[in-house]
């Protein structure tokens, strides 16, 4: 049984026609199910949890990358299959999953090609892309196997990556080539600031990857609580244990899918 979840931004009038077409196409392909619109008052995790209890086996998010990333944790915990129908802006992730925008995504759903992806797990919360810390880095340490990594004062951001995809107009660092969503590993990147000479002071114009570690478990500790941002939306606090959960997420993908950036 399919459960379709529509993101809040799809309430806008400009999306009405697309959604109508979409529903007709789903009917034609005989992959109908329950349709639910998200609102600010509805908790997506509770909604999916309840539907899984009622027998849902496939959750399809209708929206963009953010919608997809928000449901990762609850979908992984309930061991159901996840699909996406990309609509609107910010669908770079869907492109890497090989899912085209709008109506054509229904054909991908109907074909039901399922791939198992690794997920990152931070304490007991799952994430798909990355987790970042960018405050007071010299006050933390990262333990891996039998050694400890201590960031210096020039460190700007710590990122642990499961899957990387470049957002629109973003030029990826070559180190991201190491990130694969099916290699049973996580990549730890430590970044420093790139500065350019300004009139009075040096300006920060970007970041560059300074250090790279690969592994299946990282233990992050700090002298104070530091905010950890997961998949660019969920915030947790240190101390955290970050590990990879191999083949945890079932996703419906298209033929043009890529595990890593090209």
């Amino acid at each position: 049984m399919y459960y379709y979840i529509y993101d809040t931004f799809l309430d806008e009038k400009k999306y009405e026609k697309i959604i109508d077409k979409l529903k007709t196409r789903l009917l034609d392909l005989d992959i109908q199910g329950k349709h639910e619109k998200l609102t600010l008052l509805k908790n997506v995790e509770e909604l999916i949890g309840d539907e899984v209890k009622r027998g849902t086996t496939t959750v399809v998010v209708v929206g963009n990358d953010k919608t997809f990333l928000k449901v990762i944790n609850v979908v992984a915990k309930n061991n159901v299959t996840l699909g996406i129908i990309p609509i609107g802006e910010g669908n770079d992730l869907a492109r890497y999953l090989g899912v085209p925008e709008g109506e054509s995504a229904c054909d991908i759903l109907a074909a039901r090609k399922i791939i198992k992806f690794d997920l990152g797990k931070i304490n007991s919360y799952y994430f798909f892309t990355n987790m970042k810390i960018n405050k007071n880095l010299p006050r933390m340490s990262i333990e891996k196997d039998e050694y400890k990594i201590i960031p210096g004062v020039t460190c700007y951001e710590v990122e642990i990556c499961n899957f990387y995809y470049p957002r629109k107009d973003e030029i990826p660092d070559k180190a991201y080539k190491k990130c694969s969503v099916r290699d049973r590993k996580l990549e730890l990147f430590i970044k420093t600031k790139v500065k350019a000479k300004g009139w009075l002071h040096d300006k920060v114009v970007g970041m560059k990857i300074d250090s790279v570690f690969q592994g299946d478990k990282f233990d992050i500790k700090s002298f104070e609580y530091l905010p950890v941002v997961l998949d660019d939306y969920k915030i947790m606090k240190t101390p955290v244990i970050v590990e990879v959960e191999p083949e945890k997420l079932n996703v419906i993908v298209g033929k043009e899918r890529a595990d890593t950036i090209i």
């Binding site: 050694y147 990594i149 210096g152 290699d183 420093t192 300074d210 250090s211 570690f213 690969q214």
Partner: peptide, 19 residues
């Protein structure tokens, strides 16, 4: 990308222990 675990220890960090 998919081979052995490569490690790059940049100038901004310090590593202590058995690597």
């Amino acid at each position: 990308g998919n081979g052995a675990e490569d490690t790059i220890i940049g100038s901004s960090i310090k590593v202590e222990g058995d690597l």
